[in-house]
């Protein structure tokens, strides 16, 4: 005889829990005052993104992004918006590297950076590296809108794993529009779930990669000269200085792309590009 078991209660699917992570949007607005100096009428940190005004040179405002806690963690929804209005000069740095860490739920974290630079304004966006820790899953987007006479210096560095660690999943997209047209659109996808990333066509074992983008109307008169970075054109073993190239974009800008075994060597390559392009 078989024992009839009562049908198992069919439990309705639990409603999707609200994202366990933080939701935070920090905002910076730079505005020119009557005397032409750059003021910061909006300097609103939020959640883990604390903003500090730091001493600046003539006519320029400087802000340092200070991480007030560990973030982004899985499930976090972070955003950072900066606007350099017409005629301003805004320089943004960070106090430390950003480390993407796994959350409790394994959810993807997002970090959206939205930058706007007005007519005659200049934005220097020079954060510290983004480090993808093992088990983390971060989707980063950086969107830049430039007026025709805007100038931009933007550095982006990614480090795949802390020292001796496997990388987490890191997807990052950088879209730069100038006068409504897309000047640059680059996406990277590294770590678990990103097919083909750990190959000799993409990184060849390097664990740090970055870009330095310089855009400005001066490139309409003459494009940047191509320059190979690192002084070692080919065939470097994984322990070499890394390699990179500085080259003109199709529009008025120059982009340095570099890969290196670690963040220190990557920064050297990007600094070399910065010296070459800004003189």
């Amino acid at each position: 005889m078989t024992l009839a078991l009562p049908p198992r209660a069919v439990r309705p699917p639990a409603p999707a829990p609200p994202s366990a992570g933080l939701h935070a949007t920090a905002r910076i607005v730079a505005r020119a005052d009557a005397a032409g100096a750059t003021r910061l009428p909006v300097l609103d940190g939020d959640g883990p993104l604390a903003l500090r005004r730091i001493r600046a040179g003539a006519g320029q405002a400087r802000v340092c992004v200070v991480s007030a806690m560990s973030a982004p963690l899985g499930g976090d929804r972070l955003a950072l918006e900066a606007t350099a209005e017409a005629g301003t000069a805004l320089h943004v740095t960070a106090a430390a590297a950003t480390v993407a860490l796994p959350g409790r739920t394994g959810e993807t974290a997002t970090y959206d950076v939205r930058l706007t630079v007005g007519e005659g304004a200049r934005l220097d966006w020079l954060p510290e590296p983004l480090i993808s820790a093992r088990g983390s899953d971060l989707r980063m987007t950086t969107t830049v809108e430039l007026a025709p006479t805007a100038r931009l210096v933007l550095r982006e560095e990614q480090v795949l794993g802390r020292s001796g660690e496997e990388t987490g999943a890191l997807r990052s997209r950088l879209i730069v529009r100038r006068a409504g047209r897309t000047l640059l659109d680059q996406e990277t996808a590294y770590g678990p779930g990103g097919p083909g990333w750990d190959t000799s066509a993409v990184l060849d074992g390097n664990r740090a990669l970055g870009q330095l983008l310089v855009v400005g109307p001066e490139f309409e008169d003459g494009p940047a000269e191509v320059r190979l970075l690192g002084g070692a054109p080919e065939g470097q073993p994984g322990d070499g200085p890394g390699q990179g190239v500085l080259a003109p974009l199709a529009g008025p800008g120059a982009l340095a792309t570099a890969v290196a075994p670690d963040a220190l060597r990557l920064r050297r390559l990007l600094d070399e590009a910065a010296r070459a392009v800004t003189g």
């Binding site: 997209r173 879209i175 990277t188 000799s200 066509a201 993409v202 990184l203 390699q243 190239v245």
Partner: peptide
Amino acid sequence: PAASAPLLDIT
């Protein structure tokens, strides 16, 4: 898509 391959560009 805009998938980039840094080493393909550099080399």
